[in-house]
């Protein structure tokens, strides 16, 4: 039979254990609340970033670093109901992209220009998720990662980390007041940097002059209109990815209004990253190699089957375009035309 002192020790031990458990639970709850708050705050910041990049006037210069190379660009942006933007390369061949409302004009150094009609009306820099409506936390963790200073502006850092190897992670520097994106780093699952852009000079709130938003005169020599807009498919797509990576679902199935029969453009997304699948008919049926190509964060997987050519691309890891490409099958209900 235990004596009094042993009983006291036992009671004290149970009490201490209870305290510790209580403290651990409280600490866990605090951490959980903090994490939840960070996720919510991070998602809110992403949402604010999405609206600020469209509404604000700004102009500046930025560096774009990818695969050991640095390019410099200049951007002009006039926000409002009819956004106008211009993105210009400052090194190498003089290429630029201009958006005026829904018209996107790509001008290349050889003075050729192609005009596309955008149906989304979304901007050149950057295109960000509607975080409030996305269930990003299923495949990403979002957290606040401190503060910094970029291009003379104070910034909050938001880190979006992937939960698996089928998507990239992002580290985003958002200006404290306007939430404009000042810098972004794209990382793989191992947090190795793949590319980044960063403003080196920026004037937020400065409206670009009209002359900053139009191309130069000599660039109009060979303007070509791209064929008509894409339209939604009337029925189910002829092809589909039967086992894409977790979270990637079919978000749109379209075709060019001017395309030949059977051509399709499918878009798969996890809410943040997107992958396009282009299905095009070929005039002949050569034995084209299966090819996986990469540039920066962009991966392209291409192959042919019968008289069809498939091009799968997106700012996702090679494993993702490969998985989607290799799971493409003709839908039984709607066999592709011969």
């Amino acid at each position: 039979m235990p004596n009094q002192s042993e009983e006291n020790v036992r009671r004290q031990s149970i009490f201490d254990m209870g305290i510790r458990r209580g403290l651990l639970l409280a600490l866990g709850a605090l951490i959980s609340c903090n994490v939840t708050a960070q996720v919510q705050q991070g998602a809110e910041l992403l949402g604010q970033m999405a609206s600020s990049v469209r509404a604000l006037d700004y102009q500046g210069s930025l560096v774009y670093q990818h695969a050991g190379r640095i390019d410099t660009l200049r951007v002009f942006h006039a926000g409002g109901t009819r956004e106008q933007e211009r993105l210009i390369s400052l090194n190498g061949p003089r290429n630029e992209v201009i958006r005026n409302g829904n018209n996107v004009t790509c001008i290349q150094a050889d003075d050729s220009a192609i005009v596309y009609t955008s149906t989304s009306g979304r901007g050149l820099l950057p295109l960000v998720p509607e975080a409030a409506t996305s269930r990003l936390d299923e495949h990403y963790t979002i957290r606040l990662a401190g503060s910094d200073r970029v291009a003379g502006y104070a910034a909050d850092i938001v880190e979006v980390s992937p939960r698996d190897g089928f998507r990239y992670g992002y580290r985003l520097w958002l200006e404290k007041e306007t939430r404009l994106l000042l810098r972004s780093v794209v990382m793989d699952q191992g947090k190795r940097q793949i590319e980044q852009f960063m403003f080196v000079s920026l004037d937020i709130g400065k409206t670009p002059a009209a002359t900053d938003l139009i191309p130069r005169q000599r660039e109009l020599l060979t303007t070509t209109a791209a064929p008509a807009d894409e339209v939604n498919l009337r029925g189910p797509p002829t092809w589909s990815a039967h086992s894409p990576p977790a979270g990637f679902t079919l978000r749109s199935a379209r075709r060019s209004a001017a395309s030949e029969a059977g051509a399709q453009h499918l878009v798969y997304s996890d809410g943040l990253a997107s992958v396009s699948v282009y299905v095009e008919s070929m005039e002949s049926t050569p034995d084209l190699p299966v090819t996986l190509a990469n540039r920066g964060t962009l991966n392209i997987y291409s192959f042919s089957r019968d008289s069809w050519r498939f091009t799968v691309l997106g700012d996702v890891p090679a494993a993702t375009v490969t998985a989607i490409a290799e799971s493409l099958k003709a839908n039984a209900a709607s066999r592709p035309p011969p």
Binding site: Y116, S120, S184, F197, R251, S274
Partner: peptide, 15 residues
């Protein structure tokens, strides 16, 4: 364009 129409993202489209 299609990604944007569905509310998805790309950090540096067109670059």
């Amino acid at each position: 364009d299609a990604a944007a129409g569905n509310g998805q993202s790309a950090m540096l489209p067109y670059v």
